[in-house]
């Protein structure tokens, strides 16, 4: 199999700062959610992606509005990058009418067709056949738009994964399958759920390339994505990018994650994608201490306003439990 073309990519200082902003915003969004759960203000299951932000930012950066994304449950940040207002996303978590679901469900269980965002169910991997269907329409229309579909290493064991990737391979669909391999499917470690080391190896059996990369390096993720996007846009079909990473919190906020060691967690925290990128940007003199401080303050303001917006938004009316069932 030919390796992924390493397309030349150049990012301007402004773009690098924008990436930095998204990393900080997405981290802050999830951290605030975690606090809100502990305060009892958010009642739904919250599945943070803290530690995995480089994947969302590296794959989502520079996508077109009419490219489609099919996020997984830890990817609330990808909703924000694709254009959902932070206040709307926070409202979704507070079950308010201003949320995408109007209180019917939380987190990723809603989408925005106009922004090219698909909202999956809780059935992991069930977004992948839908992603293939979206990509099929791009092929039918001979456009060069692309679908980016996300899943965990756990979901790669689901039948829908096989059905979707197989179909995408047969049809050479314009789609990128992004595996966020965070080492655990809830409590089950990867060595108990698959007999191979790399999910990326699975791509070969579907007739397209798979690569395993450092998912905590936002520029590595960006570079691989740009290569895969170029292939998909030029009709060369799908790519699987496996991003090795780690989730810092439990499966959900109520999970104490006793199934892993403190040493393991500490090791992965030392690979935190954000300080790594911060040091890199400062070394390039793209980011000054003052700019960093400004971005931190800007992020805090965005999150504060989002929470305020959500908390003061109206609750759904009881009668809306039985509306919007049929078109």
């Amino acid at each position: 199999m030919p390796s992924i073309k390493r397309t030349k990519f150049k990012l301007s200082p402004e773009q690098l700062l924008e990436m930095f902003y998204w990393l900080k915003l997405i981290r802050a969004f999830d951290e605030r959610l975690s606090i809100l759960v502990k305060q009892g203000k958010v009642r739904s299951g919250v599945y943070t992606g803290i530690g995995q932000e480089a994947i969302i930012v590296g794959t989502g950066f520079g996508l077109r509005k009419d490219d489609y994304i099919c996020p997984l449950h830890r990817d609330l940040g990808s909703f924000l990058m694709k254009g959902v207002e932070p206040g709307v996303m926070m409202s979704q978590m507070f079950a308010k009418t201003t949320g995408l679901s109007k209180g019917r469900d939380s987190a990723l269980h809603s989408g925005v067709s106009d922004l090219g965002i698909f909202g999956n169910t809780s059935m992991l991997g069930a977004n992948l056949p839908v992603a293939a269907g979206l990509a099929l329409t791009y092929k039918m229309e001979h456009t060069d738009n692309v679908v980016v579909a996300y899943f965990g290493e756990g979901a790669s064991n689901v039948g829908d994964f096989h059905e979707a990737l197989n179909f995408a391979g047969v049809q050479r669909l314009p789609i990128i399958f992004v595996c966020e391999n965070n080492q655990y499917a809830y409590s089950v470690p990867i060595e108990k759920s698959m007999a191979i080391d790399d999910v990326a190896d699975r791509a070969e059996s579907y007739g397209f390339d798979g690569v395993a990369i450092n998912g905590n390096d936002v520029l590595a993720v960006y570079q691989s994505t740009q290569g895969a996007l170029a292939r998909a846009r030029s009709g060369e079909g799908p790519t699987l990018i496996e991003c090795k990473t780690y989730r810092w919190h439990g499966h959900s906020e109520h999970d104490k994650a006793f199934y892993r060691t403190n040493e393991e967690l500490a090791m992965w925290k030392s690979r935190d994608p954000i300080p790594t990128f911060t040091t890199y940007l400062k070394g390039l003199h793209v980011l000054s201490d003052q700019q960093e401080q400004d971005i931190v303050e800007r992020v805090a303001k965005v999150i504060d306003e989002a929470v305020e917006f959500a908390m003061s938004a109206p609750d759904p009316k009881p009668e809306d439990a039985v509306t919007d069932l049929y078109a």
Binding site: F118, T137, E163, N166
Partner: peptide, 23 residues
């Protein structure tokens, strides 16, 4: 492209239909 033969993948057949319908 309008009469699409699929693999034996009933779940994907419906999932693909859902994706296409959203567009």
């Amino acid at each position: 492209m309008r009469v699409v033969d699929t693999p034996i993948s009933e779940s994907a057949i419906v999932g693909i239909s859902i994706g296409a319908s959203l567009r």
